[in-house]
Every structure is written in C-alpha cells, then in structure tokens.
Amino acid sequence: MEVTYKVHRKDPENGGESSYSTYQVELPEDATVLDGLQKIRDEQDDTLAFRASCCQGSCGECAVRINYKAQFTCTTRIGDVTKKAPEILLDPVRNIPVIKDLVFDMDRFTWNKMAAMKPWMEPDDEFAPTENLVPESEMADVRKTMSCHACSLCDEGCAVLPVNFDFLGPAAMVKGYRFVMDPRETGAKMEARMKVVEQPQGLWDCVHCYEADGKCPRGLTPSSKIMEIRDVAFKEGIKHEKVGRHHASFINSVKQTGWLDERKLVMETEGMTNVTGLMKLLPTAVRALRRGKMPGRHEKRPGADQIKRILEKAEDSK
C-alpha cells in the first residue's frame, strides 16, 4: 500500500527552523512505521535523521510521536495508523529539545535526569562471597520496575516539564522508586536515598496528575510509583523542609479540628518565623480579604475527636 509520511525536520546547520517533509512510500500492509522511515532514508532522502536500535520494542531508542501519540516506531504498524488518519505524521517526543529531525536531546533530558537520582548501589559488602538472601515476593516488584526502557515516553506526558524543564520527571522518579523499594538498601543507605529522591526538582515537584500512568509501554504506572515513594517519605520523615512543614501543618489541622485550616496551613508552610516568606503572601491575602474569600473562623467539627484518634493510631502503626 502507498502511505504518506509527514516528518518533522530540523537542520541545525541551516537555521534550525522546524518544518515538515512529505514522502510517499510503498510498503506492505504489516510494515512498521520504522520500516517506512528506513525505506525513505534509503531510497528517497538520506538526510533524514531518526534513531532506532533493537527493532523489537525492547530498547526504547525509537520513541517519537506518531500522529500526536508518543510510541515506538518499531512496534507501530502502519495499518493501525492509517486506518485512523490519512497520513503518518511524525514528530519528536514533546518536552525535549530537538537536535535534528526526529533526534532529540536525551543527554540533557532523560540521561541527566536519571543520573541526578544517583542511580547505583554502593553496598558495604559488595564482594561478599554469597548473594543477599531476599524473598522472591520482595524482589518481584523491583524487577518489574527495572524493566523500564528509559524511553522517556512517561516524561512525554508530564504536566510539569512543559513549564519547568528542570523537573526530574517521572522516568527519573521510577529509577528512584527502584532503589527506594529495593530490600537490599536499608538503614543509612535508605536515609541517603530518600534525600536524593526528595531533592529540589524531585519527588515534591510532581503534581501527581497521573498523566504518566497511561504512557508507559511496559505498563509501569510511574505516577502511582511516585505516590508510593511519597508514602515512604511520610513514614521515613519528609526531608524537604518546606513540604515537611506543609504536610505536618495539614495533618495537624485535620487532627485538631477534623478538617483543614487553610489560613494556618499557608502561614505554617512558609514557617512562622520566615518573615520574607510571609510578606510574599500578603498581596494574595489582601486580595482575598477584599473579595470575601478569606476563610472564616475555623471551627472544630463534630467527630473531630474520633478523627484525631484514628490519625494518631495510624501514625503509630508505622
């Protein structure tokens, strides 16, 4: 069948403007999008730049956006694309600077962000003669997580990265999760690991919008994993100072009255002795006051004592 490819182009040696090239390619029905790209480069335009390696959906190298959906070219069949749209539109993955055509900057992106997780173990007993004894039940989840391709398709869906390029993103957090949940890292190693995971631009910069959960080609649910790391952070004690104050105030407020005291939360989060931080809040507070939006007196709710009892018991069960 004849297929139309419309491919994003960018030539860093000629101004670097984005444009599109259109190609007509004759392909068998069950060909993949990658087959077509290779054919174009071979027969029509050898300036076309795109990455590929394993050609069987196992390495993560060929991620691009195919008709606006980020996927692997090597596992996407042209028929599945063309039955929904007249042409195959190929763009680089979002949120990542493009170098040339469909080749984007993995160094500045995924590789650097993952490296920021200090993604390695430094066991004290590295050269012990026998392996760690670990129940299979504790290893299975870590192993599944480690099947991550590092393909950056989860980062592609991230809501934070478009406004904050420095956010480490879901792929790096999945890497963090793999260590946080590894039964072989405990004690001081765990403590140090949580500090790394909670670094600025890390765990607490995620908006938990759950966008990433649906994006992983391995079904790894990165967003849910971030929430699981958060649960661990609560247990271990939050290392991020401001977030720690915020969450402590939040929980305290619900404990005392059954519900959230927004005004107190805002001030306690800044830190009651942090004058600059508190001053920054002033204009918003004044605007709110003028509009009658300032929360009123915060009354203790009926049932608050039961709620407090439950929360305290749950905290003790750590």
């Binding site: 173990m121 050269f127 299979e136 290893m139």
Partner: peptide, 8 residues
C-alpha cells in the same frame, strides 16, 4: 550485590 534483581 550491586543490584541485579535475580529471581529467587
């Protein structure tokens, strides 16, 4: 020891 999550 350095992290491969072998089946047990």
């Amino acid at each position: 020891r350095v992290g491969v999550p072998f089946n047990r």
